[in-house]
Design a protein around this nucleic acid. Structure first.
Lengths: 128, 128
DNA sequence: CTGATATCTGATTATATGTTCAGATATCAA
DNA sequence: TTGATATCTGAACATATAATCAGATATCAG
């Protein structure tokens, strides 16, 4: 059989740069890590959640009703959104009486929010 | 009318920490910026696209068929994915003969990928 | 206890989007 | 030119998920 045909996990595709492909394959992230990473980004990739996160980035800590007021998001939506973010370890909650105060739970996420905002500013106008 | 009821864009929600809410509102990102940010994260938030991006992060530059081979993704999917990423300015393309070589187009995105991977490592095991 | 408030939850619906397939385009070799 | 190859495109389908609504839980005041 020809040696330029791959028979592993891919379909029979011709490979142009064999060593580079091998290197890339060797460093592929494990499936579960990749899914976790994708999930992290997906959670940041919704306007409603992003609004909440940037509000928390600025305000530090806010209760559900204040988050609702500050972002103009119905409280139910805020609650649903925060549950997803909390389960993923992106925000943390602190109870005080009948209120729950939320804040960002991770320095890396804070960095992601910052850098992405910066990216946007720099990327503006570069592409058609 | 009572002064603890908000009547601007939100529904009539009671506000707990008025000044903090005002501050958060004043610093809210404009809608279009927020949509762009959410779109950026959403594009990173898919396992197939993330696989391709991390492959490019490691390999530097790969053509479609090599990306397909390296990640085990059908070439059609690779092409669809790369179009979205290219339109958003996340990857750039270089033609060489009948092949197209793709690579990451933005230092910030590279940072996002790095930091998120780091986040994952550190966050592993912290939450239930 | 009862009532009021803040938040949460589950189910439904509507929308968005990743995947697949068939075929189109573009480049090169002969 | 013709044929082969690499990539792209559009449409149909299937799945995921955000928004909405009704009602549940939890905390506190009286």
């Amino acid at each position: 059989m020809p040696d330029d045909v791959v028979g592993l996990d891919a379909c029979a595709t011709r490979v142009i740069d064999e060593p580079r492909v091998e290197a890339a394959r060797a460093q592929l992230l494990p499936e579960d890590e990749l899914n976790d990473l994708a999930q992290l980004f997906r959670l940041l990739g919704d306007a409603t959640r992003a609004r909440l996160l940037y509000a928390l980035l600025e305000a530090g800590e806010l209760c559900v009703c204040d988050l609702s007021a500050a972002t103009g998001t119905p409280e139910t939506n805020v609650s649903h959104a925060l549950r997803l973010l909390r389960t993923a370890g992106i925000v943390k909650a602190r109870r005080s009486g009948r209120m729950m105060f939320y804040s960002l739970d991770d320095a890396h996420v804070r960095m992601l929010l910052d850098i992405s905002r910066e990216h946007l500013r720099h990327a503006k106008g570069r592409h058609l």
